[in-house]
């Protein structure tokens, strides 16, 4: 299938998802509220800590808010585009429903990843973005068109990292069938992306800043918006995305070979 075919397929899935959302309006509203509330919890935490101190690892209140907002945009994008698809991938492999995707004419990873969109997650991207805009306003930042474009590109690269790490986690299902609950790893890992890189010391610095991409993923775009383009951070983010995405595809394909259905 050519690129154009994939795009048309994705659009069809998107249309279907919008229709579904319209059918379950109350449900969508509830989920949007849930996410909104959790975002408020994160922001309140920042507010409470900064009511007792002026700086966390050299970041002032609004810089920190901009970082948290950036982390939230990426997480909402991931939730909107990929979360339920990847969450169901694990379940489908366990139950054998995964056969259905293998029978489809297209790349299996693409097919499983793009089946559904969650409109409620995407709606909250705007809320998270307004947190960033608010923080930027308070900091008296005046990013030009290019700065904003760069920020958006870095967010997209970050989204690739979110996606890749989650594919890795759910791919474990191919080897260990009993992985229920392991999906929560995602939320646990990306709690780190709401922290400034400078706060990490020693072993934590090694593990969460260098070995895992969970800190750099939000810090690189936030820094770029705060202090202009940072070539080293951009290169680092891009390299991390390429490496983790390749690893995810490799592990997923290895898992595919092990997949032996579950039907009778």
């Amino acid at each position: 299938m050519k690129l154009l075919g994939y795009i048309r397929l994705w659009l069809a899935c998107a249309r279907y998802s919008v229709m579904r959302t319209m059918m379950f309006r109350f449900d969508t509203l509830m989920w949007a509220l849930v996410e909104l509330f959790w975002m408020s919890v994160n922001i309140l935490t920042i507010e409470v800590i900064y009511s007792h101190t002026d700086s966390i690892a050299g970041w002032n209140e609004y810089e920190m808010l901009l970082l948290v907002g950036t982390a939230m945009i990426m997480q909402r994008l991931f939730m909107g585009f990929f979360w339920s698809n990847l969450f169901e991938l694990g379940r489908n492999v366990r139950t054998g429903h995964f056969d259905f995707f293998l029978a489809q004419p297209g790349n299996p990873l693409f097919m499983v990843s793009t089946r559904k969109l969650d409109i409620d997650g995407l709606a909250n991207v705007f809320v998270a973005a307004s947190v960033v805009v608010f923080a930027a306003h308070k900091l008296d930042l005046h990013p030009g068109f290019l700065d904003i474009a760069l920020y958006v590109v870095l967010l997209a690269i970050g989204l690739v990292i979110h996606y890749s790490t989650m594919v890795l986690v759910v791919s474990l299902t191919f080897w260990i069938v009993k992985t229920e609950g392991l999906e929560g790893t995602y939320f646990t890992m990306y709690e780190f992306s709401r922290l400034p890189r400078q706060a990490f010391k020693g072993v934590n610095n090694f593990v969460f800043v260098y070995a895992l991409p969970v800190v750099i993923v939000s810090n690189a775009p936030a820094r770029t918006l705060l202090h202009g383009p940072q070539p080293d951070l951009m290169l680092w983010l891009f390299g991390a995305a390429a490496a983790w995405f390749s690893l995810a595809v490799f592990v997923f394909n290895r898992g595919l070979r092990r997949y032996a259905s579950a039907s009778s």
Binding site: I49, H52, T53, S55, I56, A57, F192, L195, P196, Q198, A199, F200, K201, N204, F208
Partner: peptide, 9 residues
Amino acid sequence: FVLWGAAFQ
């Protein structure tokens, strides 16, 4: 630990 450790700096 990381967050509060940094806040206490």
